[in-house]
C-alpha cells in the first residue's frame, strides 16, 4: 500500500487544529464542569449545603445534555455557537459544542470523585472549626486529587473523540480529514494515518493522566 494521498502539510494542520480544539475545550470544560460538579456534590443529600431542589434541577439538566448524542447536540446548539463565536465552522465554531457536551460529563465525574472523600475527614475538619470554603479548598480538593486527575484524563480522551465527530459539521481537525478524504473519497491511506495519530494522541493523554494519578496517590 502506498500513501500517495497523504499530504504531510494537511495532516500537520489538522493535527494542530485537533490539539487546539481539545486544549481550549478542556480548559473551559474543567472550569465549568468542576464548578458544576462541586455544586452538585455540595447540594446533594447529607452534604454541606444540602439543597434538594437545587440538586434536583441541576441533576436533571445534566442528565438531559448527557443523553443527547453529541452529533445532535452540536447541530441543535448552532445558534448559540454562532452567537458566541460568530461562526459554526472550523476550530472556533467547534469549541462551544465541545464544552457544552463535555462539561456535564466532567461534572458527574467530579461529583463522584468528591463523594469518594471520607466523610470522617470532612467531619474532623468541621470539628476543628473549618469553614465551608476551608472544607472545599483544603479538604475536598486535596483529598479528591487523584480522582479529579483521573476525571480530567477521561474527559480529555472523550474530547478528542468529540473533536473527530465535529468533522461532520465542518469542524476541522483530524476527524474532518478522515471523514472528507478517508470516507467520502475512499482514500484509505489518509484515514489510516489520521486514525493512527488519534490513537497516539489518546495514548499520550492517558499516560500523562495515569502518571499524575500515581504521583498523587497516597493510599
Amino acid at each position: 500500500m502506498t500513501f500517495e494521498n497523504v499530504r504531510p502539510d494537511e495532516i500537520w494542520e489538522a493535527t494542530k487544529d485537533t490539539l487546539t480544539m481539545t486544549a481550549w475545550s478542556l480548559v473551559f470544560t474543567i472550569v465549568l464542569g468542576f464548578f458544576l460538579g462541586l455544586v452538585l456534590f455540595l447540594t446533594s443529600r447529607r452534604q454541606l449545603l444540602q439543597q434538594s431542589a437545587v440538586y434536583g434541577v441541576l441533576s436533571f439538566i445534566v442528565n438531559i445534555v448527557r443523553s443527547v448524542p453529541f452529533v445532535i447536540l452540536m447541530i441543535s446548539i448552532m445558534p448559540f455557537t454562532k452567537a458566541i463565536t460568530g461562526t459554526t465552522f472550523g476550530v472556533a465554531g467547534t469549541i462551544p459544542p465541545l464544552i457544552v457536551g463535555a462539561a456535564p460529563f466532567f461534572a458527574r465525574l467530579v461529583e463522584t470523585a468528591l463523594r469518594e472523600v471520607d466523610r470522617g475527614v470532612i467531619e474532623a475538619a468541621v470539628a476543628m472549626g473549618a469553614s465551608k470554603s476551608d472544607i472545599v479548598f483544603r479538604v475536598l480538593m486535596r483529598e479528591a486529587r487523584p480522582g479529579l486527575f483521573a476525571a480530567v484524563t477521561v474527559t480529555a480522551v472523550t474530547l478528542v473523540s468529540y473533536t473527530a465527530m465535529s468533522g461532520v459539521i465542518g469542524g476541522g481537525g483530524l476527524g474532518d480529514l478522515a471523514l472528507r478524504y478517508g470516507y467520502q473519497r475512499f482514500q484509505t491511506d489518509v484515514m489510516l494515518v489520521t486514525v493512527a495519530l488519534l490513537v497516539i494522541l489518546v495514548q499520550l493523554l492517558q499516560m500523562a493522566g495515569d502518571l499524575l494519578v500515581r504521583r498523587y496517590s497516597r493510599k
Binding site: 471520607d118 475527614v121 472549626g129 483529598e143
Partner: peptide, 17 residues
C-alpha cells in the same frame, strides 16, 4: 469556639493526601 475543643476519632480521620 470549635478550635478550643479538640476531637479524636475511632478511624482517626486524617487527611490521606
Amino acid at each position: 469556639e470549635r478550635r478550643k475543643i479538640g476531637m479524636i476519632f475511632q478511624h482517626f480521620n486524617l487527611l490521606s493526601m
